Simulated assay, not measured.
Amino acid sequence: MNKPTLLIIAFLITAFAPVFGQEKENTEQPADSLQQKASQSIKEKFPRTRILNFEYDQSLSRDFNSELFDQEFQEGEIKAQRNFNASVNIPIYKTRKWGVTGSLNYQFSEFEFDNIETTDITVFEQDGTVNFHNFSAAISSTYFSTLFKKPVIYNASLIVDGNDEGLERLKGLAGLSFILKRTKRTTITLGAIVFIDPTSQIPFFPTFTYNHRFKNSKWEVDFILPQRLLFRRPVGKNGRFSIGSTFGSTGFYVNVDSPNFAEVFEYSQLEIKSGIIYEHRFSNYLIGTFQGGIQNFISNRLTEKGEPTGDFIYKNEQDATGYFQVGFSIDPFAGKKK
């Protein structure tokens, strides 16, 4: 599950939760349309859904060992892994019930290896620094309606991606999300996602969110299956502090120059980051984020392009390590939505 896919899922599973920077109870705010509430809440929870977002993260040194075709392969040290991500989301068309958004994403990934054993075959590990440049574009159509007398959001998305060598794949997804319960302190939603992608490990999965503000407390719990479990509270007038864990992925295309291999592979790295997050709203238009803690690597696989990830030819295991991430988001239209 790559980052553009996770970004689009965000449009489906977080549409109705309370919003950072508002008053304590949303019910005290002036009535607003379902679409405006959904858009505002999504942008508060997921920086990459804002108009402009820039992130830099770095994980620290850890040892790794790997297997190629189920045989022991290389081992060594990843001294550092650095990622830079820039995303743009442009509203293309909007009515009271329909919305169409175009998204562009650039990801730079850099691995710094050391003490790698020399072999006749090189996948992408080698002593020194290895860089990867990946791009993606998506168009997403969202429809706001009701189901069983409950507000519901439908979404269909088309994604194309590639790297600096050219375009690689076209994929899609469809889904829905609707409210099960909404009170002053509790919001519960349920939904589902279907992937139009033969490489997906799970072609279908349910989505579930639970947001609850504790009584007579500034703390709240924010649970989003499968993306996060956070405990949060406001800090001052313009800040928010969170502690917990988030699930994510880093993926990119790898071009292999060897007559015994296919030309293009996909590397997928699934990870859980646990620690703290601090967000600060500098203005209506600018939000900064810092997070850091421990990063655990769940699955790291290399698969031929277009093949299911279960048919991987290479995998590695990496020790847990520390990480930090900084980001800035800009939404030029935020002031008009107050």
Rank of each mutant, 00 (worst) to 15 (best):
T5G: 08
T14G: 14
G21D: 09
S39C: 06
S39F: 06
Q40A: 14
S41M: 08
I42H: 09
F46V: 15
N53C: 10
D57R: 07
Q58H: 11
L60G: 06
L60P: 10
S61C: 12
A80W: 05
I92C: 12
V100E: 03
E112A: 11
T118K: 12
T119E: 15
T119M: 14
V130Q: 05
N131C: 00
N134V: 11
A137I: 10
A138F: 09
S140E: 00
T142R: 12
T142P: 06
F148D: 12
I153R: 04
I153S: 06
G162I: 08
E168H: 11
G172I: 11
R182S: 10
T186H: 04
F195G: 12
I196D: 13
I196F: 15
T199C: 00
S200C: 10
H212K: 08
H212T: 03
H212W: 09
V221G: 00
F223Q: 03
P226C: 02
F231H: 01
R233Y: 09
R240A: 11
I243H: 03
G244Y: 09
G248C: 05
D257L: 07
D257C: 01
V264T: 13
F265K: 04
Y267E: 08
I272N: 13
K273P: 00
G275I: 00
E279C: 09
H280P: 03
N284P: 09
L286C: 11
I287V: 14
T289A: 06
T289N: 06
Q291G: 00
Q295C: 02
D311I: 10
T321E: 02
Q325G: 10
P332G: 08
K336Q: 12
